[in-house]
Amino acid sequence: EFTQISGYVNAFGSQRGSVLTVKVENDEGWTLVEEDFDRADYGSDPEFVAEVSSYLKRNGGIKDLTKVL
């Protein structure tokens, strides 16, 4: 089950073990991109978060400006 990723309007994530599946949706709710990120592939949590965040930004993730990150 996908849940909204904090700080984004149209990005959602689903966690299974160490694998986080993220997706970005358009205004109609269609999935634009979907990608798996395995936490085990990264040396640290900040590196993992930075990679996921960068992916979302590159692929149309819209920041939720009503929330302070």
Rank of each mutant, 00 (worst) to 15 (best):
E1G: 13
E1R: 12
E1H: 12
E1K: 12
E1M: 11
F2E: 04
F2V: 05
F2M: 07
F2R: 06
F2H: 06
F2D: 04
T3E: 08
T3V: 12
T3H: 12
T3A: 08
Q4C: 15
Q4E: 07
Q4L: 15
Q4R: 15
Q4W: 07
Q4M: 09
Q4I: 13
Q4F: 08
Q4S: 06
Q4G: 06
I5M: 08
I5E: 04
I5W: 05
S6V: 12
S6W: 13
S6K: 11
G7L: 06
G7W: 05
G7M: 04
G7N: 05
G7E: 04
G7F: 05
G7D: 04
Y8A: 05
Y8I: 05
Y8C: 10
V9D: 03
V9S: 08
V9R: 09
V9T: 11
V9A: 07
N10W: 04
N10Q: 03
N10P: 01
N10H: 07
N10G: 02
N10D: 01
N10M: 03
A11W: 04
A11R: 00
A11M: 02
F12V: 06
F12P: 01
F12M: 04
F12D: 01
G13M: 14
G13T: 07
G13L: 09
S14H: 09
S14E: 05
S14L: 13
S14Q: 11
Q15E: 06
Q15K: 11
Q15I: 13
Q15Y: 14
R16S: 07
R16G: 02
R16C: 13
G17A: 02
G17D: 03
G17T: 02
G17Q: 02
G17S: 02
G17K: 03
S18Q: 06
S18K: 04
S18V: 03
S18G: 07
V19K: 06
V19I: 12
V19H: 02
V19S: 01
V19W: 03
V19R: 05
L20G: 00
L20F: 09
L20P: 00
L20T: 03
L20K: 01
L20C: 15
T21I: 07
T21D: 00
T21W: 05
T21L: 04
T21E: 01
T21V: 08
V22H: 00
V22N: 00
V22Y: 01
K23V: 08
K23N: 01
K23M: 07
K23R: 14
K23Y: 08
K23L: 06
K23H: 07
K23C: 09
V24L: 08
V24E: 01
V24Q: 00
V24P: 01
E25C: 15
E25D: 05
E25W: 10
E25P: 00
N26G: 07
N26V: 05
N26F: 06
N26E: 01
D27C: 15
D27I: 11
D27R: 10
D27G: 10
D27V: 10
D27N: 11
E28I: 09
E28P: 04
E28L: 13
G29M: 03
G29E: 02
G29Y: 02
G29F: 04
G29P: 03
W30R: 14
W30I: 15
W30T: 14
W30D: 14
W30K: 12
W30V: 14
W30H: 13
T31F: 06
T31A: 07
L32D: 03
L32T: 08
L32Q: 06
V33Q: 06
V33Y: 14
V33N: 09
V33R: 07
V33W: 14
E34P: 02
E34C: 15
E34M: 15
E34Q: 15
E35P: 01
E35L: 09
E35N: 10
E35V: 13
E35F: 13
E35D: 07
D36I: 12
D36K: 14
D36R: 13
D36F: 09
D36L: 10
D36G: 06
D36E: 12
F37T: 00
F37H: 00
F37W: 01
D38L: 02
D38A: 02
D38M: 02
D38R: 03
D38E: 02
D38Y: 04
R39P: 02
R39L: 05
R39T: 02
R39W: 07
R39M: 06
R39D: 01
A40I: 06
A40K: 12
A40M: 09
D41Y: 07
D41F: 08
D41M: 10
D41V: 07
D41G: 06
D41I: 07
D41C: 12
Y42H: 02
Y42N: 01
Y42T: 00
Y42R: 01
Y42Q: 00
G43H: 09
G43A: 13
G43Q: 11
G43Y: 07
G43S: 11
S44E: 03
S44H: 01
S44V: 02
S44T: 08
S44G: 05
S44L: 03
S44A: 03
D45I: 08
D45R: 06
D45W: 15
D45A: 06
D45Y: 14
D45S: 06
P46C: 15
P46L: 15
E47M: 05
E47A: 08
E47F: 03
E47P: 01
F48V: 01
F48R: 01
F48W: 07
V49Q: 13
V49M: 14
V49T: 08
A50Q: 09
A50G: 05
A50Y: 09
A50E: 09
E51D: 12
E51R: 09
E51A: 15
E51M: 12
E51H: 12
E51Y: 10
V52G: 02
V52P: 01
V52E: 03
S53R: 14
S53F: 13
S53V: 15
S53N: 14
S54Y: 09
S54Q: 11
S54H: 09
S54C: 14
S54K: 13
S54M: 10
S54A: 14
Y55N: 03
Y55M: 07
Y55I: 03
Y55R: 04
Y55T: 02
Y55L: 04
L56I: 13
L56E: 02
K57D: 15
K57E: 15
K57S: 14
K57Y: 10
K57T: 13
R58A: 12
R58M: 12
N59F: 10
N59Q: 05
N59I: 08
N59P: 00
G60R: 02
G60T: 03
G60D: 01
G60W: 08
G60M: 05
G60L: 04
G60I: 02
G61C: 15
G61Y: 05
G61T: 06
G61A: 15
G61K: 02
G61P: 03
I62H: 05
I62V: 09
I62K: 09
I62T: 05
I62S: 04
K63P: 12
K63M: 14
K63W: 12
K63R: 12
K63Q: 11
D64F: 09
D64R: 08
D64A: 10
D64W: 08
L65Y: 10
L65R: 08
L65S: 10
L65M: 10
L65C: 15
L65E: 10
L65G: 10
T66D: 11
T66Q: 10
K67C: 15
K67F: 13
K67R: 09
V68H: 11
V68S: 13
V68N: 12
V68Y: 10
V68P: 11
V68D: 14
V68G: 13
V68R: 11
V68A: 11
L69I: 14
L69K: 13
L69R: 12
